[in-house]
Design a protein around this nucleic acid. Structure first.
Lengths: 242, 242
DNA sequence: TGGACAAATCTTGCATACAAGACTGGAAAG
DNA sequence: CTTTCCAGTCTTGTATGCAAGATTTGTCCA
């Protein structure tokens, strides 16, 4: 294995690089995380890679299969339900406790909704997946509670993995409209309605999942070998959605 | 250092042993966690101890001071406020989403309240601290959502550390009554009231904290050397409260 | 051709060695 | 008597080595 230590600086820790990759849907559930590869990628020894894995394991972001390897988690159907359930309770509680939006908060949310609209117009599904999750983190940021933000960030990461596993159709427009309605309610100072809308929104997204779908162990191979794809278009890159 | 490997079996992982010790208030915030000592206590090498520390670090249970050591976290005043804030939102959302109690749930909660009463009668402050935190975990258990239970367990652990740092007076009876009211509301199927009561209860507990108090680096020594204590009574053991 | 077995390879699990910073205690200088 | 400095000690930070299980691949036999 060649030395790649000069390729990527250790700007950010391994932990956040991996979480970031999940949050932006650049890495798939079940992806293998090889200790040696990560070590040479970051120019450190396996020790530090393992430490990062241990931390991510505690956050339910990766799992280890003994003597086989580390993998990005693939939430089961049950787990998916629990995660959506937890998010419903937490986000409802969060929204209900929120006072009226200040100018900065309103601006931040509107800017985010604008990004969503742009991504929809561009048909950039990967970016949309990322933005859809980010919306909920932004709400938590309005509450300016770092503890809650951390909790919701990890739940969002797991939610994105769930989407990649079970999302049959991607109702981007519907989700976007849900977000708009929540923002509207917040601007009207109607926290109660915002909370109810958030619960309903999460319900809709969860309903859009096909939780009966079995994880396909051949998915990666299938995609890689898929024929008649235009050259230059990576299988994982943005693709138009219907 | 003598070999203590036969003293404690590795029944439970180091992680849960430490969390358990915090949840039962057997270990103080700021307590040092020496890698070598833990290693020989559990009969393993430092490697595995460090792995446990990394996981606990990701859960904000311990922190490392570079080249000085590992310590049980001492939440700052700000952090304490964030944690109580997060708990208010999460527990309110949880309670509001709960349906009417079934027989098993009612039994579990009543049994818990009974334990609280017994501890109050016995004047066992350490046990009470533990029970007071456990109440909220039990509520989460009723929702049967493992994801939420994990989140609340970690928040509870940190809450207990906060109590040990900042709780000036321990209003055990008042807290117990708060719990009773919440259970009553749940039994009446009034989730809305239960949620409001929980928020109010957490507010009261937070108000009972003296967040201006600076962490006393001499606390341990002070307690250890405190004179005129009856022999046989450990400084950390149950003590009557007023 | 198909299946079973075995060697080779890969990957993690765990311990250990050594480096480096932080602290302690004592000696020496003012 | 106080302060400063330095050697010794302790503790964590990081790399590395080896063991052991899992997987793969190639070969042999039916």
């Amino acid at each position: 294995m060649q030395d790649l230590s000069t390729e990527l600086p250790l700007f950010q820790s391994i932990d956040s690089a991996i979480v970031e990759a999940i949050l932006s849907a650049r890495i798939r559930p079940g992806a293998r995380l090889n200790e040696n590869q990560l070590a040479s990628l970051y120019g450190v020894s396996r020790t530090r890679v393992r430490e990062a894995m241990m931390r991510l394991e505690a956050r339910c972001i990766v799992r280890v299969s003994p003597r086989r390897g580390w993998f990005v988690v693939e939430p089961s159907a049950d787990e998916a339900r629990y995660i959506y359930g937890a998010r419903r309770m937490i986000e409802a509680g969060l929204l209900r406790s929120m006072g009226p939006l200040d100018a900065a908060g309103r601006a931040a949310l509107h800017q985010h909704l604008e990004l969503e609209r742009a991504a929809i117009a561009a048909g950039d599904r990967q970016r949309l997946t990322c933005l859809m999750g980010d919306f909920h983190i932004r709400i938590a940021q309005l509450a300016a509670n770092p503890v809650l933000i951390e909790i919701l960030r990890d739940l969002t990461a797991r939610t994105i993995l769930i989407s990649l596993l079970y999302q049959s159709e991607f109702h981007a427009v519907q989700s976007h409209e849900g977000h708009c309605q929540i923002v509207e309610a917040l601007e009207a100072g109607d926290a109660e309605r915002a909370a109810a809308l958030a619960v309903q929104h999460l319900d809709e997204v969860e309903d859009g999942l096909d939780l009966t779908r079995q994880p396909d162990p051949l998915a990666d191979l299938r995609e890689t070998l898929q024929p008649n794809r235009e050259p230059g278009t990576s299988p994982r890159s943005p693709s138009a959605f219907t």
